[in-house]
Design a binder for these strands. Sequence first.
DNA 1: CGGCATCCCAAGCGATACTG
DNA 2: CAGTATCGCTTGGGATGCCG
Lengths: 132, 132
Amino acid sequence: MSLKMRKNHSPDPPVPCALTECMSIIAGAWAPNVVWSLRSGPRRFNELREDIPPVSAKVLSTRLKELEERGVLKRRVKRTSPPSVEYELTELGQDLIPALDAIVQVGFKLKIARGEWPADEPIPSHARVERP
Amino acid sequence: MSLKMRKNHSPDPPVPCALTECMSIIAGAWAPNVVWSLRSGPRRFNELREDIPPVSAKVLSTRLKELEERGVLKRRVKRTSPPSVEYELTELGQDLIPALDAIVQVGFKLKIARGEWPADEPIPSHARVERP
DNA sequence: CGGCATCCCAAGCGATACTG
DNA sequence: CAGTATCGCTTGGGATGCCG
């Protein structure tokens, strides 16, 4: 494909590489946390809000919808009373876990480098988010 | 500055977990591509612009400065004529490569799932960006 | 409980022009 | 070559309130 300089910002696929492709899924302030929070099983809307304290309902809702459209998770309505909704990772969602885990590992290296994590403490593998 | 209008957006630490920590480094449209482009050695400013076609000079410049401040890469000025500037990953920058590679792997899975990459073709390990 | 509607703000990015 | 300056747009996100 001829990738010529376009005068203006691309109406066409912008750098259609695998990296950008996947990054666009886990971009944004909360999407990675949502996926990460779901890695150990289904969670409900308000559970996710508690997992990721500062997220607003609007944004969480938006992210969830987007992640569902992208095939990362599934929304499941349980017709109980009161009705409850569960979100669960799809296979694609599961595929993201190793990538996120790799990112978390780097995050811990950063904390150690800044002395925010005791260096003698082992780096937790498959570390949890701060879910109390 | 200390007395911000407290009506909106949180003045408090936003989920200081390892995941968010590292994500903030590789967030944005181009930061991951920059790191990825540097993984096989130093690159110059305009080389990076060619590696990542749609990025503007302003944004690239901003990202590079930010990544340098964060300790991800080093800026090295060669006093030739005309002077040239090289950017190179630090150790921290290198640490990011496995994470980005994991992301790229997912990216290829996505492409395959959509039939944009021949399924019989092997998934390139440590795949390159489209650097011709 | 699980959202959506509304309003607003700030960051990120692109385009163009200009500089040392 | 390697940027900076300026501008304006688009997007993401927060706060609050309402609703089935």
